[in-house]
Design a protein around this nucleic acid. Sequence first.
DNA 1: ATGTCCCGGATGCCGGGA
Length: 272
Amino acid sequence: MARSRTLKLATFNINGIGARLPQLLAWLEQARPDIVALQELKATDAAFPAAELEQAGYGAIWQGQRSWNGVALLGRGTVPVESRRGLPWDRSDTQSRYLEAAIHGIVVGGLYLPNGNPQPGPKFDYKLAWMRRLYRHAATLVDLPHPVALVGDFNVVPTDEDIYDPTGWRKDALLQPEVRGEYARLLAQGWTDALRRVHGDARIYTFWDYFRQHAERDRGLRIDHLLLNPVLAARLVDAGVDRSVRLQPKASDHAPTWVTLRTSGATRRRKA
DNA sequence: ATGTCCCGGATGCCGGGA
């Protein structure tokens, strides 16, 4: 029996799963990802469309919240095996922003990092505190002998090469040096930023705001990231952004962002 | 400051968040 050579792992900030379920289902059918992390569900647990996703062939776990935030993990033909709900070290944090599970043999941490605007202010402080908690938790994952991915909307523009024009965004929380420093510190644990690894210095964006036809003009930001631990990075084949999804009617302001990974145990492809 | 879109309250728009 033929087996697929690769797994596709995607992250997608859906910006309201209630308003965009048809678009989500259409993308799942077309792109056929094996693993999906969703952010900004903007739906309560009860409103999560588990039945529709199951009908589409996906098992799911989710952590909803009224109006804001909310994350989910999907597995094609399987139900994710949950390993963590929320980051450790702050029981007072009730925002639904982190969900972790084993899916198709990969430990996937799906995250929706706080936006942090306006800065300075309490929201920015919360963002930095959240990043430091993520750093501590990621340190327990990076060197595991298992494949691990941290994926989601990081709300971090890592460098000025990751935005169409940084000048108008200089005071934005997504570009602040402290935030970039925390992201760099995280990568330095040993994580591979998959989009950058595959595309080098090429301009590549994952988010285009709703203003001034920025999507059509490709004036975007790269803020959705897929970080792979060394075990998983060794299996990286390709990475990309499904930008056409962003150009459709009633689109989310983010596009699905994905990697393909050699199946565990698969032999390295050789040139004919 | 602006631009646009989603969500929820108790709307026939507004505030909050992004």
